[in-house]
């Protein structure tokens, strides 16, 4: 599937997913060892996206199981189609009468019905849910169990069984074994800690917020139209923003949303006012927005001074920003934006 770790990086890169060696190593090992991967990390860093991209890169069909509180085996594995069974018995009533004809005792009648058991407990009446679909698929698939932390601990125990040997027992039909072991990705937002038993069966991958360089590369890949300078400013503001004590720290997906919003607004550079107006794209809590509004001046101020010193170091490879002269930062930047 993959030749090497670098091959993973390259193949995911072709699908516009930029990742470092850490992610690639785990994906490579998962494919080699046929082990499920438990992906943890803050919301919006691309955990689910990773599974989707691996599916695309390997050409496997993606089977997704979204977890939620109260999810049970019937929704995840299989269910007998009760109404259909009932409907069939209703329609076949007369046929039954035929079968029964001649039965003299109750025991005899029950015996005859019993012989037809398999008609009603067969594949025809099973509704396969994602887990069963992944196991019984004819071609190798990729199973994504999303937000596994939202499921109940009880379900987790059941999942263990499936993940350890990829086989499922349906009492009436027998044991179904996977023809091809699916590649399994479990994602978790750490709403609760998963059990040790589950973790033991999985490779563990923790995706953190990307560093500045990686984030910039991701941004440029995912939002192709963006100007380099705007992208750099945006990423550096995001990096600073994450250091503030916020209720919900903005993530990669927010960076991309913001970039697209700015692109739609035809913005050419980030100013205090513009940030102020578009803050609700990246921050989802009123309290966070208020808190950040007080800091905007500092966010840009630090950026522009930082930018100056960097420019000096590299020998001004970039033309100096005409609208943000060095000091005193806050007010001058504001003025710069106004024209």
């Amino acid at each position: 599937m993959f030749q090497s770790v670098d091959d993973v990086i390259q193949k995911l890169g072709q699908q516009d997913y930029i990742c470092g060696k850490d992610i690639a190593t785990v994906v490579y090992l998962a494919a080699k060892l046929e082990k499920p991967v438990l992906v943890e990390g803050p919301a919006g860093v691309g955990k689910t996206e990773l599974a989707k991209v691996v599916a695309r890169a390997t050409g496997r069909p993606l089977i997704r199981l979204q977890c939620y509180e109260g999810l049970d085996e019937a929704k995840a594995l299989y269910e007998w189609e009760y109404s259909k069974q009932l409907l069939y018995t209703q329609i076949l009533k007369e046929k039954f009468a035929e079968t029964m004809a001649g039965a003299t005792t109750l025991r005899d009648a029950a015996e005859r019905v019993g012989r037809e058991d398999s008609v009603f407990f067969s594949d025809r009446f099973i509704v396969p849910r994602p887990l069963l679909r992944a196991i019984s698929a004819d071609e190798p698939s990729l199973l994504l169990i999303d937000e596994v932390d939202k499921s109940d601990p009880e379900f987790e125990a059941f999942l263990l069984e499936v993940l350890s040997d990829f086989q499922v027992t349906v009492p009436e039909v027998g044991t179904l074994e996977a023809k091809h072991r699916p590649l399994a990705f479990l994602t978790s937002n750490d709403a609760r800690e998963m059990s040790d038993a589950l973790k033991r069966r999985c490779l563990h991958l923790y995706i953190d917020f990307p560093d500045e360089e990686l984030e910039l590369r991701i941004l440029e890949t995912r939002v192709p139209g963006i100007e380099q300078r705007l992208a750099e400013e945006l990423v550096s503001v995001m990096q600073r923003l994450r250091k503030l004590d916020l209720k919900k720290t903005p993530s990669i997906s927010e960076t991309l949303d913001w970039a697209r919003a700015l692109l739609a607004l035809n913005a050419r550079e980030l100013g205090e006012e513009l940030i102020n107006d578009t803050l609700n794209v990246i921050l989802k809590y009123e309290g966070d927005i208020k808190k950040t509004q007080g800091e905007i001046g500092r966010l840009i101020a630090r950026r522009s001074t930082g930018g100056e010193s960097e420019g000096g170091d590299t020998g001004a490879s970039e033309s100096p920003a005409p609208s943000s002269p060095p000091a005193p930062p806050a007010s001058s930047v504001k003025r710069g934006v106004l024209h």
């Binding site: 770790v5 060696k21 850490d22 190593t25 785990v26 090992l29 991967v37 438990l38 943890e40 990390g41 750490d190 800690e193 040790d196 973790k199 033991r200 999985c202 490779l203 563990h204 991958l205 923790y206």
Partner: peptide
């Protein structure tokens, strides 16, 4: 780096 990542993803399961 890969060596380290391999050890981590197999042995360390809590962020």
């Amino acid at each position: 780096e890969i060596f380290k990542d391999a050890l981590r993803c197999t042995m360390v399961k809590r962020s």
